[in-house]
Design a protein around this nucleic acid. Structure first.
Lengths: 223, 223, 223, 223
DNA sequence: CATGAATGAGTTTTCATTCAT
DNA sequence: AATGAATGAAAACTCATTCAT
C-alpha cells in the first residue's frame, strides 16, 4: 500500500511516475525490473520513491491492483453494450470475449503486467491482493450456474470444470488473433492497435462461439 | 549451442551437470537462476562452465531444447498406445491429453522449464531454437487437417484457429486437475504425483472431450 | 544546545518527546539510532525536530546532559541518607556504591545512554559538555583529599590514582552483581530490577569494602 | 570464518588487507565501519572482499579473533618474564599488569577493536567465538584459587568477586596511565608509545599493588 | 581442459538534513 | 512554529563474466 506521501503528490506527477513504473514492470519481470532505472527515467531522487512506497514489492502490488482496475473498467465499459439481463448466455460470452480482447489491446502494458504478476516470486505473490485469475474463473462459473438454473444450459456440466475450459479458451484468444493478423505470438509482444479491426475480429469470435456451442461436428452432421 | 569442449566431457559428468542445471533453471526463472549456485552444487569451477557454454543464455537454450526433446519423447511413447492410424480423431486427442498430463507429471522439471522459457527476457527468447508452442499448434493442426481430409471432421473449421483453441484447452488442463484435487493453481506450484490417479483424471478427460465434441448443449438437447 | 524554539514548546510535549528520544538513544548507539524512527513514534514532523535541535548530535548531547543530571540527582538523594559530614570515608564510599547501583537501576535508560556517550564517534564525543567520568573521578578525588586532610586516610596515597582505582572498582560493580545473580554480563544487557535485592547486594558491598580497606591479606594475617 | 579463497591469497596481500581492515574497524564501530571505504583504500574490488568473507560480520569476527590472538601472544611474551611458578601471587599480578598495559600500548588497534567487539550489535556479538572478558576473569580467578590453595592468600575471599574487582582495576589502568602522562582518557584515544616509559609506569604499578595488597590504611596505621 | 580469484557495475534500501509552503 | 516531500550520497551485497595460470 502506498504511503500517504504518495496520495499527497500532485496528480500530474503521480500519474507520470506511475506510467513510467507501469512501463518498467511491464517490460521486465519483477526480478529484472529496476528501481534505479525507473527513478532515473522519472527524474526523481531514489529516496523519493521510497517515500511513496515501502519497497519494490509494494510498488509492484500497487501497480498490479491499478492495472486490474483499469482492465476491469475497460471490460465493463466494453462488455456492457449488450443487454446483460436479456441476452442469453452465449451472447454474453461473446460480449466478454470481445471486451476482453479489446481491453487487453487497449491496455497492453496493464495486460502484460498482470501476466507478470502470476509469475512473481512467491513472497511477492502473497502480497498481491487477490488473484484475478480466480476472479475470472469465478465470474465465468457464476454465469454458467445462472444459465443452468434458467434452463438455458444443460445441468450435467460441472460448472467449475467448464469455467476453467472457457477461461483457457478466452486466454488463448490473444494468440489466435495475433496469428490471424500475421504476428508470431511467441516472438512479438504487441499488436499495434490500429491493426485491430472488427472486420477481422468478428469472424473469429463467431467461429469460437460455434465451437463452444456445438463442439467439433463430424462431417456428416447437419448444423 | 554448447562448445565442443562440452561434448568431449565424460558422459557421466555431462549428465550430472545437466541434471543440476535443469534443477536450477526449473526452480528459478532466468533472471533469478544463479550460475554461481549451480557451479557450487556441481562442484565444478565457474570457469569450466564457461568453457562449455558461451553464457548463461546459451546454457538455458540448450536445456530448453533438451527438455523439449525429453517431453516429446515421453509424449510419443505414452500417446502412441492406441492405434495412431486406426483410432479416430477424438480418440487420439484423448490419448494426447492423457499423455501430456502424464508426461508433465513424469518430468515436472522439464515441464516447468518450458514454461519458464516462454517468459524469459526477449533477448533470451530470441535465441531459443524454435518454440514448442508453435510445434504443438502445428501438431494439433495437422491432426485436424488429417481428420478433415478423411471426412471425419467437418471441413468448414479453420484448422489454425481450432488448433489454437484445442491447445489452449490442453494447456488449461493443469489448473483444472489441480482445482479438482483441491489445490489453488495460483498459490501452489505442484501437485504431488502420488495424488495423481487415473480414477480422478479419466472423468475429467471424459467431460473435456464431451465439451470438445459437442460443445455446450441447451437443456433441451438430447445427447 | 537546543534552539530557543525548543524551550517555547509546551512542557508536556517537550517532555514526551524527550522521553521517546531517550528511549531511542538508549536502545541504539549513536550511529544506529534513527531520527526517522524517533519522529515517527513521537508523531511530529521531521522538520520540527530540526527546529528544536541543530542536528542529531545536538539532540544527543542534550539528552546525555539531561541523563547525567537525572542520575546525579538520584545519587545525591540516595547517597545522602547517612550523615555526609559525620560519617567516615568508608561509610560514604559504601553509601555511594549502593546509591550508584540503585540509581542505575532506577534509571536504566539514563545509565545506558551515558555508557553510549562514551563510545560515540569522536566528533560527537567532543561536543559532549563535560564528561561524567571525569566528574566522577573528581568527586572521588575530593572525597579522598578531604579524608587525607582530616587525618582519616594516610597521606601518602596519590589521590588521583586512587580515585581512578575506586572509580574502576565502582564501574566494575555492575558485572559483579550480574555474575552473582547468574547472568552473563557479556551476553545479557539488563538485570530485571525485581531480581535486585538488598539481601544479595549488601554482602557484595561488604566484601568490596573489606577489599578496599584492607586489600588482599595473606592467610596468616589477622583481620 | 573466512572462505578458502582468503587463505589462498598471497600472504603479503592478505596481510596488507587485514591491516587496513583492522584500522577501519578500530577507528569506527561496527555500524559505522564501511566496507566500501575499506575496499577503496585497499584498492581491491568490492566483490573480492566478498570472495574472502561471507559478510561484514564475518570479517569483523575474524579480525577480533586475530586481535585476541595477537594480544594474547604479546601478553604471554611480556608476562612470562618472571618465574611463573616461583613467584608469588602479587608478583605475578604485577607481571600481568605490566604486560597487559604494554601489550595494549604495543597493539593499540587490536586493543581498541576488542573494546568495539563488546558493543557490537547482538547478532554480531553472538557470532564472536568466545568472549575474552570471561577468559580474563577466569584466568584471574584461577590465580586467586591457586594462591588460596597454597596458603598465600586468605581463604575467605570469594574468588569470583575478587577476580572481577582485579579485572576492573586492571582495565582501569589505561586511563590512570594516560592521566599520569597528561592525556585526557576521554578525549584522546592513544598514547604515543614513545611516551611510554618504565620510569613512569613502574611507580604506578607499585602504588596499585600496594592498594591491592593492603587497601586503604588509616593515617595511624604502620605499613 | 580446469581452475578460481578478480572484477565492477549493478542491485535495493536507508538516512540525516533541507527548504519551500 | 510546523510541516513533510525531496534529496542524494551512502550503505551492504550479488552476479555473470573474464583471464592468467
Amino acid at each position: 500500500m502506498p504511503k500517504p506521501t504518495f496520495d499527497n503528490l500532485p496528480a500530474e506527477k503521480r500519474a507520470s511516475l506511475m506510467a513510467l513504473a507501469l512501463q518498467e514492470f511491464a517490460e521486465h519481470d519483477f526480478a529484472t525490473a529496476s528501481v534505479s532505472r525507473l527513478v532515473d527515467r522519472a527524474g526523481i531522487a531514489k529516496g523519493s520513491l521510497y517515500q511513496y512506497f515501502d519497497d519494490k514489492a509494494d510498488l509492484f502490488v500497487y501497480l498490479v491492483a491499478q492495472a486490474e482496475a483499469t482492465l476491469l473498467g475497460a471490460l465493463q465499459t466494453l462488455g456492457g453494450r449488450g443487454d446483460p439481463l436479456g441476452d442469453g448466455f452465449l451472447q454474453r460470452l461473446r460480449g466478454q470475449m470481445s471486451a476482453t480482447i479489446q481491453a487487453a489491446l487497449a491496455h497492453p502494458r496493464e495486460a502484460r503486467l498482470i501476466q507478470r504478476a502470476r509469475q512473481a516470486p512467491p513472497e511477492v505473490r502473497q502480497r498481491l491482493d487477490r488473484h484475478d485469475a480466480r476472479l475470472r474463473i469465478d465470474h465465468m462459473r457464476s454465469l454458467l450456474v445462472e444459465a443452468q438454473a434458467s434452463g438455458e444450459l444443460a445441468g450435467d456440466y460441472d460448472p467449475e470444470l467448464v469455467a476453467h475450459l472457457l477461461a483457457a479458451i478466452m486466454s488463448g484468444l490473444g494468440p489466435v488473433v495475433m496469428a490471424r493478423l500475421g504476428f508470431d505470438p511467441e516472438r512479438d509482444s504487441d499488436v499495434p492497435s490500429e491493426r485491430l479491426d472488427p472486420v477481422i475480429l468478428e469472424p473469429i469470435f463467431d467461429e469460437v462461439l460455434r465451437f463452444i456451442s456445438h463442439g467439433l461436428r463430424p462431417a456428416s452432421a447437419l448444423v
